[in-house]
Design a protein around this nucleic acid. Sequence first.
DNA 1: GTCTATATAATGATAGAC
DNA 2: GTCTATCATTATATAGAC
Lengths: 217, 217
Amino acid sequence: MDDRTTKSRIRDAAIHRFGEVGFERATIREIAADADVSPGLVLHHFGSKAGLREACDEHVVASFGASRAEMVETGTTDPFATLAALREEEPHLRYLMRALRDGSPAAARLFDEVVRESEAMTALGVEAGILRPSEHPHDQAVLLVAWQFGALALAEHMARGFGVEPFSDEMTARVGRAALEVLSHGVFADTRYEDAWRRLDEAADVTPADAAEGESE
Amino acid sequence: MDDRTTKSRIRDAAIHRFGEVGFERATIREIAADADVSPGLVLHHFGSKAGLREACDEHVVASFGASRAEMVETGTTDPFATLAALREEEPHLRYLMRALRDGSPAAARLFDEVVRESEAMTALGVEAGILRPSEHPHDQAVLLVAWQFGALALAEHMARGFGVEPFSDEMTARVGRAALEVLSHGVFADTRYEDAWRRLDEAADVTPADAAEGESE
DNA sequence: GTCTATATAATGATAGAC
DNA sequence: GTCTATCATTATATAGAC
């Protein structure tokens, strides 16, 4: 028995379709068929395709917000827990990846929120002695979130590279292991490049505030 | 004066449009207008929209192949050179990111090629004492390429996080600095998570024949 | 709330003149 | 090679019955 309301059933079908084939390619007819209703009813409830998307955005963002709030509350800095939590919401995850890459406003808001939370959690981890303090904590948070989300957006290609199924347990294992190695040691044998960069930095002063104009134009 | 042939002018306009708004949203009419020709001529030269996409795929892949071949030839392991080279081909880069995310076959082929090259270049770097040897070189190459490409796909969001313009020099600087820090030291203060993972690995044997897989080639 | 039409708009593709 | 029509399809969205 499906005790969800018809409206929420339509919305969930839309989240699934949008996440699977993207907003453009998904049609109201297909979504209606998936939810076992007529195309007209979809428009009756959500006004337009754009309205339907907004409802999906809101629901997915809220859903992720709830699960993340729990993690922040319990102060989880454990990467295993993070991975497990992400894997649980696969349809929402797919939807989110599509939205991020399509540049939907809701997805942008979520990206920013995750960066903020990541920064906060990193600070906790540093205090606890688990994480290494960064010279630019905000920049690092932005980069790590972009890497993590970006890799999810390219999950299909990573899976092919590993020779496993996308979103499978094996894939989680392989990605996790490789990520932990890189994030535990880095990839450079020494700090020659970092040092070189810092010298450039100090010489040219390419820091965010002053670099607004640049030279040529 | 524009001395390109009309056909190549159409193709370049298509690369630009496809990269900017995606294959679905891009219309033949718009592309034709950008190239200052009629919609009919676009179809005359490329047969169909799919044919036009294939021509774009081929051209972009070949273009990237040429610039990468040069780097491999000169044995460049320097991340600065890599960044600079990537920034030079912005329209092609945007196109590639769209294609990767849309799952176009050409883009998949390119992803795999870059992984293979990245693995080879990493081996060189290890020999030269610049890079730290990985326990799973192939997996690491897949992950790093996915991170790099994925981050580019989310460039818009990273730029917002940094408060700079996408694809600007400032962005390159900020990303490069943050990436070098992570790739030089990692983010974990110690190896507790990596050790925990390895223990799980040995106990459950979740590794799908990667010892046999990673040798040849 | 839910359905069955139907209107309207846009797009990929074709045909044929020049 | 290049253009101007035009077709055929498909999608969103509307109107109105039940």
